[in-house]
C-alpha cells in the first residue's frame, strides 16, 4: 500500500493508504480527526472543508495521495491551545450553530473568506461566499452575523488562521 506524508495541524504523519482514499477518510479514519464531517456525496455541502496549504478545500473531493507533502489544517487545529480562534468564538457568541454538524466546515470556510477577502465583510459578500456550505438548522441568519463579527475579530490582532499550518 502506498503511503503519504502529510502535516496535519502542525504534526507530520506518514500513513499507508489505498489510492482511492479521500483526504477526509484519511483525516477521520486514519488520524481519527472526526471534527471534519461528511454530509453529502456530491461535493456540495461543505461539511468537510479543511485548509490545504492555506486554502479551503472540500476534503471529500481530494485524494489523500494528492495531499502528499501538503500542510492541512482541520477544525481541531484552529484553536491556539485552549484559546479559541476568533471565528470559533464568533460562532458561539452569535449562535451561528445549532446541531453543529455543518459547523466545522462552516468555520473553516469562514476563515478562508477572511483570508481572501479581508476583515470588512458585508452581508451580501458573506452570503455569496458561503455558496459551498449548506446548513439546515440556522437559516444562515446567525452564521452571517458570526462570520462578519469573526472577521472583524481576526483583524484585531488575533492569531492568524494559517499560523498552525
Amino acid at each position: 500500500m502506498p503511503n503519504v506524508t502529510i502535516t496535519v495541524n502542525g504534526k507530520s504523519h506518514t500513513v499507508d493508504v489505498a489510492p482511492e482514499t479521500l483526504l477526509v477518510e484519511l483525516l477521520r479514519e486514519k488520524l481519527r480527526l472526526t471534527g471534519t464531517h461528511v454530509g453529502c456525496d456530491t461535493s456540495q455541502c461543505g461539511a468537510c472543508v479543511v485548509h490545504v496549504d492555506g486554502a479551503a478545500v472540500k476534503s471529500c473531493t481530494m485524494l489523500a495521495m494528492t495531499a502528499d507533502g501538503a500542510k492541512v489544517t482541520t477544525i481541531e487545529g484552529l484553536a491556539n491551545g485552549s484559546a479559541l480562534h476568533p471565528m470559533q468564538e464568533a460562532f458561539r457568541e452569535h449562535h451561528g450553530l445549532q446541531c453543529g454538524f455543518c459547523t466545522p466546515g462552516m468555520i473553516m470556510s469562514a476563515v478562508d473568506i477572511v483570508n481572501r477577502k479581508g476583515s470588512e465583510l458585508d452581508e451580501h459578500t458573506i452570503r455569496e461566499e458561503l455558496e459551498g456550505n449548506i446548513c439546515r438548522c440556522t437559516g444562515y441568519h446567525n452564521i452571517v452575523k458570526a462570520v462578519a463579527a469573526g472577521a472583524k475579530a481576526m483583524k484585531g490582532g488575533a492569531k492568524p488562521a494559517r499560523a498552525a499550518e
Binding site: L33, T34, G35, T36, T74, I75, E76, L78, A79, L84, Q88, F91, R92, E93, H95, L97, G100, F101, T103, P104, I107
Partner: peptide, 13 residues
C-alpha cells in the same frame, strides 16, 4: 450562550 457549542466549534462533537 450555548454550553454545548464548545465541543461543536472545536470539532469535538
Amino acid at each position: 450562550r450555548r454550553k454545548e457549542d464548545q465541543r461543536f466549534i472545536t470539532g469535538s462533537g
